[in-house]
Design a protein around this nucleic acid. Sequence first.
DNA 1: AATGAATGAGAATTCATTCAT
DNA 2: CATGAATGAATTCTCATTCAT
Lengths: 188, 188, 188, 188
Amino acid sequence: MMARPKSNDKRRAILDAATRVIAAQGLSAPTATLAREAGISNGSLFTYFATKSELLNQLYVELKTEMAAALHGFPAEAPLREQVLYVWTNWMRWATTHPDKRRALALLAVSDDITPETRAVANRLMAGVTGLMERVRAGGPLREAPMPFVGAMLTSLAETTMDFMIHDPPNAAQHCAVGFETAWRAIG
Amino acid sequence: MMARPKSNDKRRAILDAATRVIAAQGLSAPTATLAREAGISNGSLFTYFATKSELLNQLYVELKTEMAAALHGFPAEAPLREQVLYVWTNWMRWATTHPDKRRALALLAVSDDITPETRAVANRLMAGVTGLMERVRAGGPLREAPMPFVGAMLTSLAETTMDFMIHDPPNAAQHCAVGFETAWRAIG
Amino acid sequence: MMARPKSNDKRRAILDAATRVIAAQGLSAPTATLAREAGISNGSLFTYFATKSELLNQLYVELKTEMAAALHGFPAEAPLREQVLYVWTNWMRWATTHPDKRRALALLAVSDDITPETRAVANRLMAGVTGLMERVRAGGPLREAPMPFVGAMLTSLAETTMDFMIHDPPNAAQHCAVGFETAWRAIG
Amino acid sequence: MMARPKSNDKRRAILDAATRVIAAQGLSAPTATLAREAGISNGSLFTYFATKSELLNQLYVELKTEMAAALHGFPAEAPLREQVLYVWTNWMRWATTHPDKRRALALLAVSDDITPETRAVANRLMAGVTGLMERVRAGGPLREAPMPFVGAMLTSLAETTMDFMIHDPPNAAQHCAVGFETAWRAIG
DNA sequence: AATGAATGAGAATTCATTCAT
DNA sequence: CATGAATGAATTCTCATTCAT
């Protein structure tokens, strides 16, 4: 009758468990482990996600959604640099506050299991930020470059900065600031 | 008394096959597939590499060695910018000329199978370039930042640029140039 | 909520199959053969026994338990010789009635897969008989010898007698009786 | 041209290595290990023994031959008890002096690889002792029992005694003596 | 729906034996 | 003959997915 089974709680539990387990063990973690960690039976997992691959795709979207949410709400009136700084800071905060989610997301991003459709959906989630980036690009040195290129360059600098913040917490604030300045020089 | 000496050709064949297969199917490609692709039997693979993990570690070093070789030979007298441009260009050329190697290397770089020892060895291969980067950093805006951070930022921009070059060959030259300018602004 | 409960029948089927197959082919019999013989799939065997080694250990305990059960119930009031004769006779009867179990048990007893813990458990099963042996020893020529030595000597005579009974059924009763007299002379 | 290849030294080296390795690792020790331990190449092993099974069979005969040699030379004039004691003592000495050989022999004795033909050959080696045993039997309580039965009973007591001597060296002499008295009571 | 046992197609290795050198 | 690489069948164990309860 219903495509979506009843308990959304369980769906969440599975996705949360998957985030934790994948962060710790990688994408090859057995579905049985995910189920156990979620407190359900291994069979039940497949009433919520038809295949492991589908679970991964949905998790990718969920995590990206959450991450995107953390970036939005930037002050549209402020100078561009302020806006980007706001996004950058929130991004870094989200990543360092949720290192498991960050790691799972990074693993998923390079997985062959993630379909092009899923990637398209995920990208759309960043639309708001993409709009901001668009404005940044238009007024900066990369105004001739294609938008995806600019976005990817920024993202790669952000990811790298996150890694340093996560692995070197004492200097996290420092890394965050330097990372931003670097990124701003690159594309701002 | 040498019987059939352990053929270097065969070792190469395995590593080459692994590069291809891993680029296409990922690190979880069965050893049997690697063997078949290398034109040897199942069991023979293990006379050349005791475990799959060892094969991956050696492949990582091989690929990194090759990549590093492609970057070196930059003109030590020229202005720093020239030197970096030289490295950048060669790097991009190597990556776009050998997309399989590039992809395999990228997958290996994030694999849990690669040991810290192997990573240390691989890093030492880049010593020459690291020296150049050191000089760049010292004279640029990142002079206060730790060297690994600067290296990682540059690398991430390079990787991103490569991806665009590989997936959009018509504009490869363009991407290459824009990527370099962006990187130079960021850290030069 | 019990789904398919882990069937005790199936566990038994595996152990029985293992007994038969091991008696016929030795301890190196493939797990796949045990599974086939038990009428289950390859993989199912491992839901009942995590490893082949664990299966062997449990089988050892099962067989020893059964054997020990066959020995007990000797008449505590009767003269020692009567009691021992009772044990001896039951022992021989069990062995000749279940030659597969006997052979499997003999193979397991000398296997490196059987852990010290398992051996300890198995020995405890013979406690009642050991008590009897203790009384026999105390009143006989071996009263100065350590108990394990006496037990081992008796066991070895019993094992030998069994072999003859099994391989020469027509004279089994004869072997049984002569074996007992010999053993009683040795330690009674 | 020649059934037997040249170097008897190598044959010996292989058999000696096999004794050591099998004592330590069991009969499933790889032929490659035996070869390495013997200081030859794995391929060479098969010019001396066509199959692993043949190697095991020959080793069994060799060890049994050596053991039999250690038992012989008993004083034919002395009283039977003296003669048996002589045999028993030499047997124990050989076993405790060469625990590897003893263990390898014990493992081989229960192996399925040993053919009936080999067993027949091995038994013939004990002919001298068997003759002595025959005389013992004829004058003792087992005069009605078949000779193989008597021999097996004695052997089992001897094996058990050896085990205790080997695993409890401080009391080896004690075990040896008690074992003999027990055996003599049983069959003398 | 939920459960967890059942399934069976792999996966990485191992190893006796063969064969090119 | 010696060598040791080559072979490929065999082995234990894993895991996504299905299905009986």
